[in-house]
Simulated assay, not measured.
Amino acid sequence: MNPNLLKQLAIVVKQGSLSRACEQLYITQPTLTRSIQQLEMKVGAPVLVRTRYGVQPTDIGVRLAQIGERILAETEQGEEIIRQFHSGYQNEFVIGIDPLWEFATVEQMTAFFMRETRYVFHFRTGSAAAQIELLQKGELDFLLAPAHLSVKQGALERQLLFKDRSGVFVGKKSPLRGAKKVISQAVLEQQNWLVAGANAGFLDRPSELIGLKAASMAFTGSIRSVLHLLNTTDMLVRLPARLALMTGDIQPDQMIQVEGPLGPRRDIALWSRVDNLERPDGMKVQVLLQDFMKNLEASIPRFELPL
């Protein structure tokens, strides 16, 4: 089967219109119609049906369009690899990073990796829970994420390289801001809480501090909304304290001392696939990431946290 027919079908399905697909493909509508007819002759059944809202794929059309999408993606990746080769790059590595880590270290990370001219780095930001699965599947080469993820390591290697601990932060409008004393559980139970990193295995729920009281808002995979709320409301949240203070969007007087044990550790580790480290370039990039994280650990203040 001609793969171009599947690629064209995928674009038609994505656009939902033959005319819009023609614009993207730079071909005439009669040409595209003939391509669809050739595909339908091969299948022996329609792959598209017309509706008042445009064209929709049939069941077999959906399945073939999915294959066409993969062919398109592989084609684009191949073209990018050729561009990288002509630009002098040796290889590409996909690195997953946690949203708070990205936000807190953006200046240091971009400056560090801009100096590296041998490799192309593709950074993917997302929750730790989602990204560890991508690493296990081989869709990531490395992951900068919490060291204490609940995950079967199996073929993964973990190196703890950045120390951090959970802390409680209050919004700038909270009367607790700047408190010099330890805040009791009775007071904490009366506050408005939000949850950051829900289901991500990284950031903390307030339940261990305030019992069964529900948080009014929860966020997964994004830190901007959390920082906005801490700047504009009286809400409370638990965050990795060192990273949170590194952002500059949260002030030290917003972190309060609370009754009970210290917050749990929230150290950051470099997670790697063991089989990836068998590649010479993989070993070199691992050393690059280790050096970056070690330098950051040594240069970033600890904000008087018990680390």
Rank of each mutant, 00 (worst) to 15 (best):
257 Q>D: 13
199 N>L: 08
262 L>P: 06
233 T>K: 13
252 P>Q: 12
153 Q>S: 05
264 P>I: 06
187 V>Y: 00
24 Q>C: 03
117 T>M: 08
19 S>Q: 07
125 T>R: 14
73 A>F: 05
214 A>R: 15
293 M>D: 09
86 H>P: 00
230 L>A: 09
214 A>S: 15
198 A>Q: 11
83 R>H: 06
32 L>Q: 08
98 D>I: 02
180 K>L: 05
248 G>L: 01
92 E>H: 01
10 A>F: 00
265 R>D: 09
64 L>N: 06
218 A>L: 07
12 V>W: 01
125 T>G: 06
156 L>P: 01
299 S>A: 15
112 F>Q: 15
131 Q>F: 01
194 L>V: 04
228 H>P: 00
169 F>T: 07
275 D>A: 07
300 I>K: 14
245 L>K: 10
32 L>K: 07
86 H>V: 04
257 Q>R: 15
162 F>L: 13
88 G>A: 07
251 Q>D: 13
228 H>L: 12
122 H>L: 14
93 F>Q: 07
73 A>S: 10
127 S>Y: 04
72 L>H: 01
43 V>R: 08
62 V>H: 04
130 A>I: 09
300 I>P: 03
217 M>S: 08
219 F>D: 06
242 R>F: 05
58 T>V: 02
301 P>Y: 09
27 I>H: 01
192 N>P: 00
85 F>H: 13
228 H>Y: 09
184 S>G: 13
99 P>I: 02
84 Q>N: 13
279 R>W: 00
267 D>A: 13
242 R>C: 08
27 I>A: 02
256 I>G: 13
172 K>L: 10
107 E>W: 05
185 Q>Y: 00
38 Q>K: 14
256 I>M: 08
175 P>H: 09
6 L>C: 07
103 F>H: 14
50 R>T: 08
98 D>R: 04
12 V>D: 09
163 K>I: 02
257 Q>E: 13
47 V>A: 12
